[in-house]
Every structure is written in structure tokens, then in C-alpha cells.
Design a protein around this nucleic acid. Structure first.
Lengths: 217, 217
DNA sequence: GTCTATAGCAGGATAGAC
DNA sequence: GTCTATCCTGCTATAGAC
């Protein structure tokens, strides 16, 4: 354990721990003392490597969050290539899988979505960066799959709202994980997670299946 | 303005401002100084009326959030009575309307959903209270409309996931309001809000309408 | 009930030894 | 690069005047 941690540079250990803590508790909820303690280094290290707590937060997005978002996007593209045809339904499936099943550990996924949710709820300086570098380009690419004729400039409001609805579900199920566990009593084991992916895909493509439960007026 | 504010007791002014600030910035992001300053009273008032900052946070949920949640539920029930029949589709419509159009100001709605989102993301002591008093009972009632044959104990996983998907969209569109405005450039004016309600209802009942954009394999 | 003043402490940041 | 020691600000909470 000690050996393993020592192989990672102090700077990287700080970034790792900082990301996890910021995701969990938010910027103000975390102290530099807490970060450096978990990273097994000195209190002064944060200022030495990053200048300030604020700059460390920015760096977490620059060097961790954005590269991961790009990896998720590549995963999405790979899933799309595996589909028979680039239909809207295929795009929805690929998106849900890339975000919820992609090549990340469960811990990494939770970090990623929690940080995204925090920035969506209360955009900070980092939001400008991730909106420009990641969100807008991906929303456009996804929009082209959902509606190939679309110009991609967000003019089609219906298309835009569909995308936000899907993202809402994807984010919500990792974001509200703790609360869902407490209320339903279900753990987020791999089985349940697979169930979630399936459900989101089905919901997005067909809505609630009313055929079996009641009339659709 | 001054006269209007004076008619409200100091205790209530503190609760009002505290709720708004906690919703916006979270517990740690708000200081007692900030709350008392906005409430136009003394720094010591929070401790005088509520004992501590922590107890003030709890009281915000007890005396503001829960009563409002109960009002929303009554609105839901009123909308259901207006429907021709208590079908699942009617329940979805009533839910979306109660949460997004109900008799609240826009400001109040944002407060409400932001506080809910915060507790869903990182449940505090207040979560036990709102889960037991509000969420679980409402989820059961709503579940009975979606699936009248269901026992209401959450055993039907499909039903439970449908409810969480709808809540995800409802919460997300107020929760991520600021980010959506920045990315799309659209304001949350009454027109856009009505559009959102309509879209959520349609999405929940039919999913993405693929008929017009591409094939559904 | 409302105020001022302050105790007591935790936070971010920095200086300077090694 | 890494450490300790410390500065200073800003926080919650409380004591006590009015």
C-alpha cells in the first residue's frame, strides 16, 4: 500500500484525493488540511504545487475531469461503430452505456458525475472550460445522431430538450445514488447498474410502457 | 420595502433568507453572518432563535420545506381530480405540472428543488425526516396510480425506476437551470417553462419520438 | 428581543529551515 | 521538494449590556 502510493508523485496524489473530496463535499466543504492529510503529504504542498486551493480545483478539471470526459466520448463513438446503423435509438443506447458502463471504475464514475452535477447546479470558473471543451461539442455530435438533418447549432429545441432529458437521468442515477440506496434499500451492485442502463435506454426510447398498466388517452 | 420586511418577524426573516442561501450555496457555503445580514438582524439572532447554525438548517426543512412539499402533493391530487380518469398517463401529467407549474413562485420552486437535490446528493440529518414524511408516502401514492395492482411496497422495480426517471427530469431542469441558460442561451421565461412541462410529459409517456427522425430497429 | 463585544477555534496561505 | 511553525482572516457561539 505504502509502496504503491509512493510510486505516484505527490502532485498526482493531491489531485486524486482532491477530486474525490471535491466531488463528495463540494469546494467549501473540503479543507486543504483534509486533502493533504489523505494524500499523505504536507499542508504546504497544495500551495507549492498549485498556488492556492482555488487553483487546485481548476487543475482537477483540467487534468482529470476533461481527459476522462474525452475518454467517455471516445467510448461513445466506439459503441456507435458497433451498432448496425447510426440511428437515434443506437445513439441513445451508446450514450447510456458510455456514461454508465464505460471503462471506468464505479468510484471514478461517481466522482465524474458528482463533479459535473456540482458545476451544473452552480457553475464556477471551471464551468466555462468544460462547457466549451466538452459539453457543447458532445451535445452537437449527439444531436447530429438524433436528428441528422439538424444544423447542430441548437436551433431545434425539441432535440435539445431530448438530450437534456437523457442526461438528466444519466446524471441523476449516480448523483442521487446514496438517497436511492437509502429509500429503496437496493445496493448499486453490477446487476442493479445493468438494470439501470437497460431501463434508461428503454425509457428514453419508449417512455413508460403504458401498454401493460393502463390506457393511454 | 422596509415596512414590508418589518411586518415579518425576525425569526421568519432568518428562515426565509437561510433557505434561499442554503439552496444556492449549500450548508458549508453559507455563513451565519451572511444570513443575518440579509435578514437585516443581528449576528447573534440565529443562536438566539435556533440554538445553532445546524439547528437552523433542520428548522428550514421542518417549517418551510416539508409544508411546501405537502402543498405540492395536494396540488398533484387536485390535478388528478381534474383528469378524466386516474390513468398512469394522467398521473405523469399531474406530477410534472404539480412540480413545475404548481402554485409557487419561480423563486420558491428553485429553492425547493435545489434543497431536495442537495439532500439527494449528500443526505444529511434532514434527509431521514423528508424521506419518511414526504418522499416515501408520495412515491407510494404515485406508484399506485402508475400501477394500480401494485402493493405499494416498492417491490415492482420497474415501477420504481420509472418514478425515479420522472423525478430525475423534474429535478434536473430546475437544478441545472443556470447551466442550461448558459449553454443554450435560453431564459427560463414562462413560455420556456411551459415548453419544459410539455416536453417532460411527452418524453415520459412516449420517449423520444423517433418516428420523424429515424428508424427504430 | 436585540444588540455589541469577544472568546475560541479552524481555515488558507506563507516564511524559512532542511 | 518537503517539512514545521506561524500569521492572519473569518467563522460559530456566547456573555452580558440595554
Amino acid at each position: 500500500m505504502t509502496n504503491l502510493r509512493k510510486e505516484i508523485s505527490t502532485k498526482d496524489r493531491i489531485l486524486d484525493e482532491a477530486e474525490g473530496l471535491f466531488a463528495q463535499k463540494g469546494y467549501r466543504g473540503v479543507t486543504v488540511r483534509e486533502i493533504t492529510q489523505k494524500a499523505g503529504c504536507n499542508l504546504a504542498s497544495v500551495n507549492y504545487y498549485f498556488g492556492s486551493k482555488h487553483d487546485l480545483y481548476q487543475e482537477v478539471f483540467r487534468s482529470r475531469w476533461i481527459p476522462r470526459a474525452i475518454r467517455i466520448r471516445r467510448t461513445f463513438e466506439r459503441y456507435m461503430e458497433q451498432e448496425e446503423a447510426p440511428t437515434p435509438a443506437a445513439a441513445v443506447r451508446a450514450l447510456a452505456r458510455a456514461f454508465l458502463e464505460g471503462p471506468m471504475t464505479e468510484e471514478e464514475r461517481v466522482r465524474h458525475h458528482q463533479l459535473m452535477a456540482r458545476e451544473l447546479a452552480k457553475p464556477s470558473e471551471a464551468f466555462e472550460l468544460i462547457a466549451k471543451e466538452v459539453m457543447v461539442p458532445f451535445l452537437r455530435e449527439f444531436g447530429r445522431y438524433l436528428s441528422p438533418a439538424d444544423s447542430g447549432d441548437g436551433a431545434d429545441e425539441n432535440l435539445m430538450l431530448n438530450i437534456w432529458c437523457i442526461m438528466a437521468m444519466v446524471i441523476h442515477f449516480t448523483f442521487a445514488k446514496e438517497a436511492i440506496i437509502r429509500i429503496t434499500g437496493r445496493q448499486y451492485d453490477p446487476e442493479f447498474r445493468a438494470r439501470l442502463v437497460e431501463h434508461i435506454i428503454h425509457f428514453a426510447l419508449n417512455g413508460i410502457d403504458l401498454g401493460k398498466t393502463g390506457a393511454n388517452p
